[in-house]
Computed example of a mutant assay.
Amino acid sequence: MSALPGRPYRLGVLPGDGIGPEIVPAAVRAVDAALAAAGTPPVQWQELPLGAAAIETHGSALPAVTVETLAELDGWLLGPHDSAAYPEPHRSRLNPSGALRKHFDLYANIRPARGLEGGTAIAPDTDLVIVRENTEGFYADRNTYAGSGEFMPAPDVAIAMGVFTRPKIERIARVAFELARRRRNRLTIVHKANVLQLTSGLFKRVCLDMAEGYPDVAVDDLHIDAMTVHLLRRAGTFDVVVAENMFGDILSDLTGELAGSLGIAPSLNASDDRAMAQAAHGSAPDIAGTGLANPIAMILSSGMLLDWLGTRFGDDRVADAAVRIEAGVRTAVRDGVSTPDLGGTASTGEFADAVVERIAAA
């Protein structure tokens, strides 16, 4: 995979299930508008099969052709999936998102949480990023070459593996420290080393070892249980938070709600050379096709992908396009345009129209 500033980026589009076919096109429109406003060549989009529709057409929720094609692209937008509703044997397999993260070693799950002016934030001053290790920790299905990492030696006994390794902790810590340098130079390490002295203890120790290479970043650490309390009391004081897989997943849902709702919570799954934009929320099948879905999380996730591309390839114009996407969303909400979940009356498409209009006018 290669890219040069000034040449069109090749990005995949995987609409997914439920509200995915509504919110992913909204994100595509925002990307196109932002790149045009920044004077960058338009994206070459490639739509690929995934999810329930792919089961019908290809016999798999994640067809081989999709994985093979993604390997040739610069990045992709992944819509939510409703794997719990898939027929067997597809339901029991690793879901498409997890399979893509594992196949492409997308080890960094980056989840910002920032309140929107005019939104419904519990803690409006929230402005932080959860950096979640995405390949091991306490998520059993990320820890084995084959199998799920869970097993039952007896009908009433279930066991799951939690794996922590120095190289993988080092690389997620590096992502977190570099991000802190781009933000407010503060990093919080979340762990449970007082009880899980070997596993979570290794996570804490390696992160603190890495801190020696970043003397400009102020570092502290908190136990996971204490962290939930501190977030409720003083979310606005945190900058970048690094955590293992399960702790990071739980904290990012909490911070998403503090900032307004999971409907506005974006995320990016990245390795050193690939990135997948994916909203933090689910497929919401109960409102699919009604026009009620909030596309903010997916739109902001697409902006994160542009920012990642801009940083990776030193492309200032695509990085500028990322800034324009977030500004367009924030301006629309501040102007009183929002979907019903945020107290507004706009449909999914109408909100996307408002964002595109503000991107073009900026």
Results as ranks from 00 to 15, higher is better:
12 G>S: 12
37 A>L: 12
353 D>W: 12
135 T>E: 03
335 D>C: 07
312 R>I: 11
306 L>Y: 13
176 A>Q: 11
170 E>A: 05
284 A>C: 05
52 A>S: 02
209 D>V: 07
33 A>E: 09
138 F>R: 03
66 T>M: 07
50 L>Y: 02
35 L>W: 04
335 D>A: 11
298 M>A: 13
327 A>D: 10
304 M>A: 11
91 R>F: 05
186 R>W: 09
314 G>A: 15
82 D>I: 03
10 R>E: 10
28 V>I: 13
31 V>L: 11
149 G>V: 04
36 A>W: 09
248 G>V: 07
82 D>H: 13
272 D>F: 11
45 W>L: 10
266 P>L: 14
244 E>M: 10
332 A>F: 09
174 R>W: 11
320 D>K: 15
30 A>H: 14
327 A>Q: 15
247 F>D: 06
124 P>H: 15
154 A>C: 06
26 A>V: 01
24 V>N: 03
7 R>F: 13
59 G>H: 03
124 P>S: 14
70 L>N: 09
294 N>F: 02
248 G>R: 02
48 L>W: 09
153 P>W: 01
89 P>K: 08
57 T>N: 06
230 H>I: 10
30 A>L: 10
333 V>S: 03
6 G>A: 01
320 D>T: 15
301 S>I: 07
67 V>N: 10
253 D>P: 00
45 W>Y: 04
68 E>G: 09
347 S>T: 11
